[in-house]
């Protein structure tokens, strides 16, 4: 089979849900349990270690809050991109997706500054229980932001040529998921005392 030919299996939709959207939901479901496991482990430990609050007070809440704002704004762009794709306006969807990806880049840049400061102050991943979770949770989330942004740019380059517009919605769904994970991480890592 040539790389582009789609099998009939791909074009059927017995459930009525388009196959691309269905697989996106399954990907998100399998990711939820990954983050869920990590977050549950963190919560159990956090409750058992009240002294972690002292470590948590060193995190930069303002940077975290700014990043929350950035991600939420980028999610809005993803929604608008989906609307544009529904209206079959590929170039507009592509522009909005690139804007969304830009949000991801800003997020990661802020994160980079934050971590540099943390490390300069001597808080590294092996500095204790809280920091182990802090870097692991935020790092895993950061990887998802990075991967999402890269895929977003690929989808955008197709969408600009009005190709594979159904993918605009899928990458948007994924981006919302990454966003929601952050909504959990931000209070649990930065605010909770």
């Amino acid at each position: 089979m040539s790389a582009t030919a789609k099998p009939i299996a791909n074009t059927r939709s017995v459930t009525g849900i388009p196959t691309a959207r269905l697989i996106t939901w399954w990907v998100i479901a399998s990711e939820i349990v990954i983050f869920g496991g990590l977050l549950a482990a963190y919560l159990m430990h956090r409750l058992g270690h009240p002294e972690w609050a002292a470590s948590a007070s060193h995190t930069n809440t303002w940077a975290g809050a700014f990043n929350t704002f950035v991600l939420l704004t980028s999610s809005l762009c993803a929604v608008l991109a989906h609307k544009a794709a529904d209206a079959l306006d590929g170039p507009r969807a592509a522009r909005l997706l690139r804007l969304t990806a830009l949000g991801g880049v800003i997020f990661l840049t802020v994160k980079g500054f934050e971590w540099t400061t943390d490390i300069r102050e001597g808080f590294v991943i092996s500095s204790g229980g809280f920091w182990s979770y802090y870097y692991t949770l935020a790092g895993l989330h950061g990887l998802h932001v990075l991967a999402g942004a890269v895929i977003m740019l690929i989808v955008a380059s197709d969408a600009a040529k009005n190709r594979e517009l159904q993918r605009v919605e899928c990458i948007g769904l994924y981006w919302h998921f990454v966003d929601i994970v952050w909504i959990f991480l931000f209070p649990l890592l930065y605010i909770a005392r």
Binding site: S30, V33, A41, S132
Partner: peptide, 25 residues
């Protein structure tokens, strides 16, 4: 499998860090 493997994937990352970066999980 999908519902049960996730936490262990997270757990494996934590164990990997314990082995290589001296984290305290």
């Amino acid at each position: 499998f999908m519902a049960s493997a996730g936490p262990l994937i997270a757990g494996a990352v934590m164990l990997l860090f314990d082995q290589t970066m001296a984290t305290g999980f």
